[in-house]
């Protein structure tokens, strides 16, 4: 029974994190983006600097009518938000936050493959939404989503493979156990490739062609309203949390830090994740959207060669030091 209790408790914690962290990131995005544009951002909801803005948004979304277009494929249309959201919940289970067995929802043996595979599944939600909406803009958004995923899955995998080579394991806690500080400069190219490809996979600006509002309204989510739309948005922000957490674990040493190694490891993980989330927001504010062909070009002609070069470098260094 203790086993069951343990599993339940872990899942509960992961679930709470899954619900809370995206909101924190979203609120941070509200405020950081506003200040980067010389604005104040939300100031009223909740009283103090609009801290409850996203809660208010959630209430608003919950009150809205759930509309399914007449020509839509009803069942798939309704299923799509869940398919988009749940994978990120699953990924969160496998991300270690601190040293040891106790600080991870579930230690997965083939952790890297698990997280990348499940994250790839999340894109199916967008595809389903895009197709089932019976809307040409949605379909175009779905197409762009698919093209983007196909282009950026490869560099992401290659960059992750580089870390796995360096650590000699594909388990996320195992990678963290093997981490040394000099991996940071060693794997920096891979880290950048991974992060950029992850941004593209999340369809975050400047890689948000699938939801480019000036071209195709809101891409695959055009026809969605109410709670299902909110779920898609939640999936996006959960994706940010997952991507930043993964980059932290794979490339930035997770719970390793200059001091406070025992007991305070989770603080380091959260801190690094937060900094990365800030960078995600920063990039969104700073850069305009890429064009669809520029996006493909960036992946195939820059990221993939860089990732391959990183793998080669990793292999050479690995052979030299062993």
């Amino acid at each position: 029974m203790n086993d069951v209790l343990d599993v339940t408790l872990r899942l509960l914690i992961v679930f709470v994190v899954f619900l809370a962290f995206p909101l924190v990131v979203g609120q941070t995005e509200h405020k950081v983006m506003a200040h980067m544009q010389g604005r104040l951002g939300p100031m009223y909801a909740g009283g103090f600097h609009g801290w409850a803005q996203l809660v208010a948004d959630g209430v608003k979304f919950a009150q809205k009518e759930d509309v399914v277009p007449a020509g839509a494929d009803r069942r798939i249309f309704q299923l799509a938000p869940a398919v988009a959201l749940l994978p990120y919940l699953l990924v969160l289970v496998a991300i270690p936050i601190g040293p040891g067995e106790g600080a991870v929802g579930q230690a997965v043996d083939a952790g890297i493959f698990f997280v990348l595979a499940v994250m790839g599944v999340g894109v199916l939600g967008s595809l389903m939404a895009g197709w089932a909406s019976a809307n040409k803009f949605s379909l175009l958004g779905g197409l762009r989503t698919a093209a983007q995923l196909l282009a950026y899955e490869l560099p992401m995998l290659l960059a992750a493979a580089s870390v796995a080579m360096a650590a000699g394991t594909v388990s996320l806690p195992g990678i963290l156990d093997a981490f040394e500080w000099w991996w940071l400069p060693w794997q920096i190219v891979g880290a950048i490739v991974f992060f950029v490809a992850g941004l593209a996979e999340l369809q975050r600006p400047p890689f948000d062609m699938p939801v480019a509002d000036s071209e195709i309204i809101f891409g695959a989510y055009t026809e969605y309203t109410g709670l299902r739309f909110a779920l898609f948005l939640l999936a996006e922000y959960a994706g940010i949390v997952v991507l930043c957490g993964l980059t932290t674990v794979l490339f930035l040493g997770g719970w390793h830090g200059p001091w406070g190694a025992d007991g305070l490891g989770w603080v380091w993980t959260l801190l690094k994740t937060a900094v990365l989330a800030f960078i995600v927001i920063w990039l969104r504010v700073t850069y305009p959207r890429l064009r669809e062909d520029q996006l493909q070009k960036l992946s195939w002609t820059l990221l993939v060669p860089l990732a391959l070069a990183q793998i080669a470098l990793t292999g050479i260094v690995k052979v030299v030091i062993s």
Binding site: D109, F113, A117, W131
Partner: peptide, 30 residues
């Protein structure tokens, strides 16, 4: 486990997405 996740990664994550991409690009009536 390894095979399982590779299965998801390659087949569900890439092959089916490619398949759907092709379907949507050519004909995918509701």
């Amino acid at each position: 486990e390894f095979i399982a996740w590779v299965q998801v990664l390659i087949y569900v994550g890439s092959v089916v997405v490619l398949l759907l991409f092709g379907l949507m690009l050519t004909r995918a009536p509701i």
